[in-house]
Every structure is written in structure tokens, then in C-alpha cells.
Design a protein around this nucleic acid. Sequence first.
DNA 1: TTTAAAATGAAAATGGTTTTCATTATTATA
DNA 2: TATAATAATGAAAACCATTTTCATTTTAAA
Lengths: 154, 154
Amino acid sequence: MHGRGPWWREKFDQHCVRITAAREIVVNILHETDEHLSASDIYMKAHAISPEIGLTTIYRTLELLEQMRIVQKFDFGDGQARFELLNNPGGKGHHHHLICVKCKKIIDYKDFIDEEINCLGKTQDFLSQKYNFQINDHLVSFYGLCENCRGGER
Amino acid sequence: MHGRGPWWREKFDQHCVRITAAREIVVNILHETDEHLSASDIYMKAHAISPEIGLTTIYRTLELLEQMRIVQKFDFGDGQARFELLNNPGGKGHHHHLICVKCKKIIDYKDFIDEEINCLGKTQDFLSQKYNFQINDHLVSFYGLCENCRGGER
DNA sequence: TTTAAAATGAAAATGGTTTTCATTATTATA
DNA sequence: TATAATAATGAAAACCATTTTCATTTTAAA
Ligand SMILES: [Mn+2]
Ligand SMILES: [Mn+2]
Ligand SMILES: [Zn+2]
Ligand SMILES: [Zn+2]
């Protein structure tokens, strides 16, 4: 059942990508947080662990991890990409987002997620037929104002 | 029923924002296209009409229009923001997107949109209660590979 | 070993977007 | 109408996340 090494090893192997110290550190950082970290967030955390790691490597690693479908990249509208692990065992699992447009607070939610996925599934099947698309992913986000930011705008 | 002037006039009035030539041109450009234009797309079109308009004004106008909820800003993952009119009479109306991650082709779809909106409505009501959020918008997008880009990857 | 390929960091370049600032246009006031 | 206050504008510069370049180091293959 269990392989030897971490869950993402086989994905590295499949893609003929080497498991280096820097890459391991990046995956671990993402594994240990439940925030949506930016490249420089990750850089700072990595730097605390291993100061010789460069920001460039962080960017390159994240792109690699994205290609291997180990991480997912998001734009929450604050001017920098943010990343989170995808399909990691014991992780949050697939979820959708609730985003405050003012303070950029992000809430992961799974309420009604099954209904949503079910509904999207139908649409997805239909669209992939109609437009001859190979659909791999979807994104559902709600935008608004969080409790704190609603203050002045009632 | 009908006011005097274009449909967006009252929004400008409400926000105490002046209707200037540049702003009118930007709205008209967005009105006449069914593409998802970037700021520099709009700049080029505006420049063809009225060469003295600066790119800065395009950016400022777009931000203003976004605040007034006349346009909606999107990130489709190609490194620049793209814009489309929101709630314009005779316009496309609310729709969702199908995006090719390779060539960045964007398809507007409304298939099953009612079911989707209905489903999302429930979630939205629930979330706004649970998290005390004022939800103003949602985004639904499918990501994948279009007909052309699927070629090598079957 | 020896050799080829992959990974890395520092520095520079890139490019979309924002800021600054001086000027011009519009509106409010006298 | 004249005058003052405010808003809008464009050019240039600054900003800043991300990418590219390039020389060096690490790793795997022969
Ligand atoms: Mn999340
Ligand atoms: Mn659209
Ligand atoms: Zn907030
Ligand atoms: Zn495509």
C-alpha cells in the first residue's frame, strides 16, 4: 500500500524530476501551513531553514510543482500568486474559497461542496462535449466583505 | 422608464464621477467587443480613436469603472488583467468561463447557468450567515485544454 | 573517473501596473 | 463673468512580482 518516501515522490519520478533539498523544503513548508502562501512567504520560511536558498529557486520549484499537479496556483487579487498543496493525503482536500476584496482574507469552505461538485460535474461534461475541451480543473470563489471590513460600508 | 444619456450615466452620477471623453471612449470600447480586453488592448483601441489618451488614464478609468461595478476585472492567468462590462443592457449577461491554460483562449458559457446560480445561491446564503460575509460576487471557471491545444497530449 | 545533464543563486532584465507631479479642464462660488 | 477650488489628465519615473541570463555547483550516467 504505502510506498517508500513521501507521497509526492512518485510524481517526481514520473516527471523525471530530482528530489533536492530545496524542493523538499518547499513542499514541507506548504505541507505545514494552512495559509495561502506567496512565493516570497515561502522564500522567507525557506530562508529561515536554509539561508542559501534563492528566491529564484522558489519560483522555479513552484512552477515545477504546479506542472506536476502537486500544488495549485491562485490569484486572489492582491498582486501576487498564492499556492496551496493539491491532493495531499491528510490535507484539506478539494475546497472552494470565500475572499474579502478589501483585506484579502481567504476562507476555505467545504459546505455544500458535494452539491457544488455534482452540479459542476454536469456542466463540465456538457462543456467538454460541446467545445471539445479537456477540462482538468475548476475554480469557484465568492467575493465580498468580511466581518471586519463591512464596518463603514453598511 | 428610460433616463437621458447612456445606461451607465446614473452610476457615474451616484459616485460623483465626471463623464469625460476618455471615460466614454473606454466604456464604448468595452461595449463594442465581445472579447476580454486587457488594459493595453483598450489603450490601443482608444489611441486609434483619440491619440492623446494616455495609458495611465486607461488604468485609472478601469479601476473607477470596477469600483462603480460597471466593469469586472479578471485574471485568466496570462499575466495581465482583463476586463468586461457587467450588467450592461443588451450585453452578454452573467456567465461563466472556460479557459485553455495553454493558449489562454476564453469561452463564455451560459449552459446550465441557472442550475449553477441556483446551487451557488444556496451556498452563498449559507456562507454569508456562517462567516458573516457580505457576498457580492462569485466566479466560476473551468480550466483545461482547448481543441487545438490538446494535440500532443492525448 | 569522466562526461553530460540538471539544478542553483546572484544579478539583471522584463513588463504590467502604480505613483508622482506639473498642467489642463471642469465645477462651484462670489 | 471672474475667481477659486476641485477633479482629471499625460508623461515620466517608480514599483515590484516574476522571468531570464549566465556562471557555478550538484547529481546522474557512462
Ligand atoms: Mn484554499
Ligand atoms: Mn466573459
Ligand atoms: Zn476583510
Ligand atoms: Zn488552447
